[in-house]
Amino acid sequence: MFFHHYFRQDGIAPNFTQKPVIQQVDGGKKLLVECQLTADPEPSITWFRDGTQITAGGKIQMRAELKSPKNYLIVLEITDVSPQDAGSYKVTAKNALGESNATIGLNFDAGDANKPKGSKPLFTQKPVIRQVEDKIIFECILTADPVPTITWMQGNKVITGGPKYKMTDVADKTSHTITLEISNVGASDGGEYKAIAKNSLGESTATITLNLEGKKPK
């Protein structure tokens, strides 16, 4: 029994020898998630998407192909691909000697599965200037994901909060309506203003000129 048990352990725990790759076939209607591993004895393969185990059937097919002794090609096949198939995919290979995992992200942003999700800030409309009594209000609309940080500037000076300035950011999903309200407007408040929106994917700037000639903004 001792020697029988000893020789049973002579083999290879699963080891992924290549990172998972994604291939598009049939004009992009089908995706193949492929990875290579070595293992002996033959491993059991389990796939997960966003932490939930995937079962074969319907649009999902799985296979493990023995390419050479102890070397396997592991394939997850997805037909009729849609944005709902995006997510984090993990494959687990397990045999009597151990187990190993490999992961890959799938999204549909410019066809790059490893590109960060989201969008850099983008101003979608021209800034609006409104005058309410002795106040001037600048309003800009932009989209951004993740949530951007907003910086307002007059010329080269960063505007900070206080009794004269009030800044707001009203968000609806990835759309943001940002405002700068200036109280007690005087001649020194004229000039060029900038709204700078920045997140981890980039930044964008909207420029507004406040002309106080004739006491009406233009």
Rank of each mutant, 00 (worst) to 15 (best):
D169M: 13
T160Y: 11
T174H: 14
W152T: 02
R130V: 09
T205R: 10
G214S: 11
M153S: 06
F108R: 02
S119W: 06
G186W: 01
P148A: 07
N184P: 01
G162S: 13
L180F: 06
F138W: 09
I137T: 10
T160R: 09
V128Q: 15
E133V: 11
F123W: 05
S200Y: 06
I129E: 04
L210E: 07
K164L: 10
P146Y: 10
T209G: 02
W152A: 04
I150V: 12
S200H: 06
A144L: 06
T143M: 10
N184M: 09
V132H: 09
A171L: 00
E133A: 12
G161C: 11
N199G: 07
K115R: 15
D134N: 11
F123M: 06
L122I: 12
F138N: 04
S188Q: 13
N114S: 15
T174I: 15
S119N: 14
G202E: 07
K198H: 09
I129T: 06
G161K: 11
I137W: 02
V170C: 00
F108W: 03
G161Y: 11
K173V: 11
E213H: 05
T143C: 03
T160Q: 13
G214Y: 07
T124I: 15
K120C: 04
I182P: 01
A113S: 12
P116Q: 10
G191V: 03
G118E: 06
M153G: 00
V185I: 11
A195H: 02
D134K: 07
E181G: 04
K198D: 12
K126A: 14
T207W: 09
G118F: 08
A195I: 14
A197E: 08
S200C: 06
T177K: 13
N211G: 14
K166M: 11
V158Q: 15
T174F: 12
S119R: 10
V170W: 06
G162H: 13
G118S: 09
T205F: 10
K117E: 15
Y165P: 02
G202K: 05
I136S: 02
K126R: 12
G155K: 05
I196F: 05
P121I: 07
V170N: 14
I129G: 01
L106T: 08
K198A: 13
Y193F: 08
N199S: 11
K164Q: 13
E133P: 00
P127C: 09
I129Y: 02
H176N: 07
M153R: 08
P148R: 03
A197M: 08
